[in-house]
Amino acid sequence: MAVDLPKRAYSGAIREIVVGKGDKSFCVGGETAYPFYTFEGKIPNPPKFGLDILDIEPEGWAGALLEVYGDSVKNPVTWAKKCVELGADMVQLTLQGTDPNDKNLGADHAVLVAKQVSEAIDVPLAIWGTANAEKDVEVLRPIAEELSDRRLLIGPVIEENHKQLGAACLAYKHVAIASSPIDINLAKQLNVLLSNLGVTDENILIDPTVGGLGYGLEYTYSVMERARMAALTQQDDKLQFPIYCNLGIEVWKTKEAKLPDSEMNLGEHKQRGVLMEAITTSSLLASGADILIVRHPDTMKLGKQLVAEMLAG
């Protein structure tokens, strides 16, 4: 006898957001069902993967990462090209060098690197600050202006600087990555504030703030899960945005991902970090991630394979 499986009735949909410009631009979002629930609704745009590069040569990075990128890490332009060669859907340029608690490089440096990277690649580009409210305004605003034709993703836009960065996205037609500290209510509130400012619905992504595996992943998971429930079943239009997960930085800063075999007896270091990043990736995919920024290309391969298989049904 045929069994009729119960189906959930969804009342909302995630908005479709265009990322980047030109041939390599893509759409994310558009879901009308929970992640990979293709039997209940549509998942028109598969989740996309970006690789994360820095504006300066990385210090203290895991051997597994340095090995795969080789000398390219000495120059953000070659590094970005390498990422595209490796199959990244997009690149995130993290402005590590502008961190006031580190090298504290200025806007001139940031604009120059962003411009060079942007000119060197045709895939979409995200520019990520250091989550220092004031410094990010100082460096991200001129980048937004300089690259006004690129439809960049700009983040993290946080409550403290949402007016300045939101206005910059609005004025120069970029997408704002609205970032809140693993809190569903604050995520919603920031989107309300951005809307009030005039940032339109097709220009917002949600960054729930990611905790890596063993470092708060389950909290991020719950927040994303609840955001999707509110968006899809409660018609909460302030949460009907695609979700951007900047996870590579979180995974690879942990000692479990970084330490060489001689200092950590938890399996071979080359695999250890990738597997931690891959588990984080698959968990975030299962809870609604639309864009995932990782650091190791093997994680990206595993993630893409998982997405393809899940959507093949």
Binding site: N185, L186, Q189, V192, L193, A230, Q234
Partner: peptide
């Protein structure tokens, strides 16, 4: 709990 809390719940 019909709508998710945010500080702006009255404006929505």
């Amino acid at each position: 709990g019909k709508t998710l809390y945010s500080d702006s719940w009255l404006d929505l």
